[in-house]
Every structure is written in structure tokens, then in C-alpha cells.
């Protein structure tokens, strides 16, 4: 028995809210709004020079989608999204567990180039906020102009939500947003969102 407990399940990935929702699903609603923590996605940080054709091509080949070079945009491949974070930095979100293979593929394709592939799967939690007033809830703590003419599905941004840095990305026109706080900020961000949603109950 003791021996069994000494070995953890390597396939098991704890969400960032497992302290608040012990064993349960991290999800809450308020009127038309839903907020949920999504299963921890694979996260790969990618650095490289997008004006170097060899780099862009190699990445496109492995991921099966273009490297987003327009600021604050997202490209979608099969099972993953590629988020623009900066002029030489991207975040690849994969299905949980798919990051190792994808990383290896990228490293192999980029061999000989100057790049950085870093597994950052533990870096951030992923929350999804959905429902008509979602834009307003975010506006309580985010100074970005989220008007549909300025920030639409397929766009992303690194910004602040209240006192937490987040990656924000609009995933559909419901509207639904993916919110990725750093993992240690996850409890704060969740509580803040829950509190901001309360008025729509």
C-alpha cells in the first residue's frame, strides 16, 4: 500500500484550481455566463526569427499551419493553436499530452537554426469564459478595447486582467474567451472572474 502511494500517476495532470474544487470540475455559471477551467493543455513556447524563411517554413511544416506574423492573431492547426505573443515569440497550445511529440518534431525540423523550443505546459492555466456579457465582465479588469470591431474571434493579446497578467484569446462569437493566467495567479483570477460575474446572476 505504502509502495503504491509512493508512485504517482504520470498521466494525471492536476488543474490549477484543484485546491478550490477538490476532485470536482472547476466550473461556475452566472445567468448567461459560464466559466470553466479547461484540461491543462500542452504548452510550447516557440522563439525564432519569422523573417527567416527556413524557420517559418519548418514551423509551418510541422504544425500544418502558417506562423502568425500579424500581431495579436491566432492560427489554427489540426489539434492545436498557435498564438502570436511577440515579434519572435509564439505559444503553441496542444491537446493535453501532445506537447512532447510536437516539441521533438519542431526541434528536429529546426535543427541547425537559432530557435528556442521550451515546454511550458505547467506555466499557465486555461479558463474559458462564455456568454453574451463576457465582454463586459472582462472590461471590468481589462483595459483592452474588446469591441468586435477591434478584437474578434481569432485574435489574442497578452495583457492584464485586474492584477494578473493573462493571455486572452477570443475563440468564438458567443463570445467565448480563453483566459490563460500564470498558474500561481489562477486562484486569484478565478475568484476575480467569479466576483465580476456575480451581477449577471
Amino acid at each position: 500500500m505504502a509502495d503504491a502511494m509512493m508512485t504517482a500517476d504520470a498521466g494525471e495532470r492536476a488543474g490549477a484550481l484543484s485546491r478550490l474544487f477538490q476532485g470536482g470540475e472547476a466550473s461556475t455559471t452566472a445567468g448567461p455566463l459560464t466559466l470553466s477551467e479547461m484540461p491543462v493543455p500542452g504548452q510550447i513556447n516557440l522563439r525564432g526569427n519569422p523573417s527567416d524563411a527556413a524557420f517559418a517554413e519548418a514551423v509551418a511544416k510541422v504544425l500544418g499551419c502558417r506562423l502568425p506574423v500579424a500581431a495579436n492573431t491566432v492560427e489554427k492547426g489540426g489539434d492545436f493553436s498557435l498564438l502570436w505573443l511577440g515579434p519572435d515569440e509564439w505559444l503553441v497550445l496542444t491537446a493535453p499530452g501532445a506537447e512532447a511529440e510536437l516539441s521533438a518534431g519542431l526541434v528536429e525540423a529546426l535543427a541547425g537554426q537559432h530557435f528556442a523550443i521550451t515546454d511550458v505546459t505547467g506555466n499557465r492555466a486555461l479558463f474559458r469564459l462564455s456568454g453574451t456579457p463576457a465582454r463586459e465582465v472582462l472590461a471590468k479588469g481589462c483595459s483592452l478595447d474588446l469591441h468586435p470591431s477591434r478584437f474578434a474571434t481569432g485574435q489574442c493579446a497578452q495583457t492584464l486582467l485586474a492584477r494578473s497578467g493573462i493571455i486572452l484569446s477570443q475563440v468564438d462569437d458567443a463570445p467565448s474567451y480563453d483566459i490563460l493566467p500564470r498558474r500561481s495567479f489562477a486562484e486569484y483570477t478565478w475568484r476575480w472572474l467569479e466576483d465580476a460575474m456575480a451581477e449577471y446572476r
Binding site: A71, N72, G86, P87, S143, L144, A157, Q158, T159, L160
Partner: peptide
């Protein structure tokens, strides 16, 4: 120059 106009608090 990369991300567009943002509030001072982000800088």
C-alpha cells in the same frame, strides 16, 4: 510598436 496602443500600466 508590436502590440498596438495599450494603457501605461502594461509598461
Amino acid at each position: 510598436p508590436w502590440c498596438g496602443p495599450r494603457d501605461e500600466i502594461e509598461f
